[in-house]
């Protein structure tokens, strides 16, 4: 049954990658609700344009990354300050998110990185893709991926230590 097989394949692809995709998107946005919406949009784009035959994880991340870029264009990403006294970006809005303090700090730090640094670091830690595959997704050279990943980690550490504004 070709139809059943297709549905099964799509469901399997979705199940196998949804958590990784969500993790990547929430690290990019710092907002779970936005991440849900962008994930939905990514899945829709994938199903509309590709289907079960094209099931590489790199392709899924390419689609999610493009959806993120479009989303950012439509709506400014809510930047999170590292200051502990700031209003929680999640509880301050209609959707109240309870995020552990230490992890919130990391998410906040990610939001404070430059866009390209946040993108590359979020993808490395979320996707299980190799540097080579990430180079394909982002259009960078592998050498550039190596440099940017490490630079992003160092910047994040400095931000979390309060050594950078």
């Amino acid at each position: 049954m070709r139809y059943s097989k297709t549905v099964h394949d799509i469901e399997s692809i979705f199940e196998a990658n949804k958590d990784r995709l969500f993790s990547y998107i929430v690290r990019m946005t710092g907002d779970a609700d936005e991440a849900h919406d962008i994930l939905q949009e990514s899945i829709m784009r994938y199903m509309e344009h590709y289907g079960a035959e094209n099931n590489s994880r790199a392709l899924l991340f390419t689609i999610a990354r493009n959806a993120l870029i479009d989303h950012t264009r439509r709506r400014r990403v809510h930047l999170v300050e590292l200051d502990d006294d700031h209003e929680d970006p999640c509880t301050g809005q209609e959707h109240a998110l309870l995020v552990k303090d230490s992890y919130r700090q990391v998410l906040s730090g990610l939001q404070a990185l430059a866009d390209d640094e946040r993108d590359i670091l979020a993808m490395v830690v979320s996707s299980d893709l190799s540097y080579q595959e990430i180079a394909g997704v982002t259009g960078m050279s592998v050498a550039n991926v190596k440099v940017k990943v490490h630079r992003a980690r160092l910047r994040l550490r400095n931000l979390l230590k309060g050594e950078e504004p």
């Binding site: 958590d19 969500f22 993790s23 929430v26 690290r27 779970a32 609700d33 991440a35 999640c90 959707h95 109240a96 998110l97 309870l98 995020v99 552990k100 992890y103 919130r104 998410l107």
Partner: peptide, 10 residues
């Protein structure tokens, strides 16, 4: 995993 840090109220 970010999922671990978001409560059901999210």
């Amino acid at each position: 995993d970010p999922v671990e840090h978001f409560s059901p109220v999210a």
